[in-house]
């Protein structure tokens, strides 16, 4: 299971990083989403991988660490909200200038300075 979780995190991070370096907003947002999925799984794994154990401190010998689950929940809510915000802002930028590139347009500098 360790191999499965670790490679899932690794592949999602790699794919996310690749997409983040694209020039248009849509792939970049997808890349950020993939990165947040990766980090959520990573946070989950930071409490060690346990199967079928209660996520609460009991008298039992084996239990799942409850804190990372709380952290992941917070992280999911925040990343969900943030993704919604960035989609709205980039939609606004796209509709306003009819261009969804992330970088600064070249004409911007030369036009003003000359």
């Amino acid at each position: 299971m360790e191999v499965l979780v670790a490679s899932a995190i690794g592949i999602m991070t790699a794919a996310g990083l690749y997409l983040v370096m694209r020039l248009r907003t849509f792939p970049v947002i997808l890349g950020i989403s993939l990165l947040t999925y990766a980090v959520n799984v990573f946070l989950f794994a930071s409490g060690r991988l346990t199967v079928g154990a209660p996520p609460i401190l009991t008298d039992a010998e084996v239990y799942a660490d409850p804190l990372p689950q709380a952290l992941v929940l917070t992280a999911i809510v925040i990343s969900f909200g943030m993704t919604a915000v960035v989609v709205m802002i980039s939609l606004g930028a796209y509709l306003g200038s009819n261009d969804d590139r992330v970088n600064d347009p070249k004409s911007d500098e030369t036009e003003d300075v000359t």
């Binding site: 983040v20 907003t25 970049v28 947002i29 950020i32 990165l35 947040t36 980090v39 990573f42 946070l43 794994a45 930071s46 409490g47 060690r48 804190l67 990372p68 952290l71 992280a75 925040i78 990343s79 943030m82 993704t83 915000v85 960035v86 802002i89 980039s90 930028a93 992330v102």
Partner: peptide, 25 residues
Amino acid sequence: AGVQYVLFNLLGSTLFLFALGAIYA
């Protein structure tokens, strides 16, 4: 400029979570 700002900070936040996960682990 806002899109750039938000995207960069989202990446920063993701990195922050990776750091926190590593510390907690």
